Simulated scan of single mutants.
Amino acid sequence: MLRNREIRFVLMLMCTVSLIVLAEAAFFSSVSVVFVLITSVLLIGCSLVFTRLRYLEVEKLSSYLRQISSGNYSLDVRDNREGEFSILKNTIYKVTVMLSEQRTLLQKDKIYLTDAISDISHQLKTPLTSMMVMADLLDDTKLPEAKRKEFTRNIRIQLERLDWLVSSLLKLSKIDAGTVQFKKDQVLVAELIHKALQPVLIPIDIKEQTISITGEDNVSFVGDLNWTTEAVINILKNSVEHTYEGGTIVISFSENLLYTEIVIKDNGKGIPKEEIPFIFKRFHKGKGAGESSIGIGLSMVHSIIMKQNGTIEVQSELHKGTQFQIRFYKQIV
């Protein structure tokens, strides 16, 4: 304790004051000197004991903080008594809990990042391996022209798939990182649906499917037209892919005081009940997914809608169809 400069200073000050008082008491009587001496010793002793106890508390807190810095967050230093030390202990405990929660979140992020890298590597490996094999075969000068065209076409398809995968992953990473600034424009749902249908009109025509759209032209919500269009396109692609030839896709939208609702329903293959909780999970591929499916489209749909104060729910039954219900809730002021 005496290694602390402030303690030495206070001790010297008290001793100096005691000596001055003793010197003054000597002018009166020896009894006064004894009385002053005993009083000074008791006061200095009490002060040292009190200071020692305070420094023991400080030492305990120092030990506690050292254990926290080494990664031990299980200790509880809370003190329900009144006083500055109790407030300090409770504050340190709150910081400890916060650090523990942040550490848990960081650990989850590391696991998530590891899994994501593993999934991405797996998704990239398949088309790259396929292209490498076909590229080796194209080196064969005796390869028939028909096969050469077929391999070239397959390489182009795989490259398009890789381009879409990388583009989607970049979009998802931006959304997850919070770097995407979603606009807050007044979006007309009729315009949104019209824009989202353009990329899927040819597949719909090829499969001779029927599109039915119902809703008022003035139905709208506050959001980002381009990003929401991206989400709706992915839902429509999913519906077209899993709806039989000659099937029907019904799109309806409405608005009330609480939310704007968009419903996309098909009469296609449907989703097994046990798979519904996982369809928005990244890289999840259902049993009925096509070979070209990567399992990232619906994950991006979920992220885009949730970031715009919205929700998305799925109802499905095997061989009877699937319904996606999107709701954009209005901001309450």
Rank of each mutant, 00 (worst) to 15 (best):
P199V: 05
V187Y: 02
K207Q: 10
D176T: 01
L192K: 09
I206R: 14
I202S: 14
D205S: 15
P203G: 08
A177S: 14
L192W: 08
V189P: 08
A190N: 09
S212M: 15
S212R: 14
K183M: 04
A196Q: 09
L188Y: 13
L197C: 01
Q181T: 13
K183I: 04
Q186M: 15
I211P: 06
Q198D: 12
Q209H: 07
Q186A: 12
I206N: 08
L197I: 00
P199C: 06
K184Y: 03
L201W: 13
I211G: 08
G215S: 01
Q209F: 04
I211E: 05
A190W: 06
I175A: 00
K184W: 04
D176I: 06
D205I: 13
A190V: 10
Q198S: 13
Q186E: 14
A196V: 04
D176M: 03
S173Y: 01
K183F: 07
I193N: 10
K195A: 14
T214P: 04
L201A: 15
T210R: 15
H194W: 08
V187A: 06
L197M: 04
I202F: 12
L201H: 13
L192V: 12
A177T: 08
V180E: 02
T179P: 04
T179Q: 09
I204S: 03
S212Y: 12
D176E: 06
Q198V: 14
S173G: 05
A177Y: 06
K183Q: 06
K174L: 11
I175E: 00
K184G: 10
T179I: 10
Q186W: 09
K207C: 09
D205H: 15
I175W: 00
S212V: 15
I202V: 12
A190F: 09
I202K: 15
A196Y: 07
K183L: 04
Q186V: 11
T179R: 03
D176N: 07
A190D: 13
I193P: 11
G215F: 01
E191K: 12
P203L: 08
K184R: 09
V187C: 09
A190P: 10
L197K: 02
T179M: 07
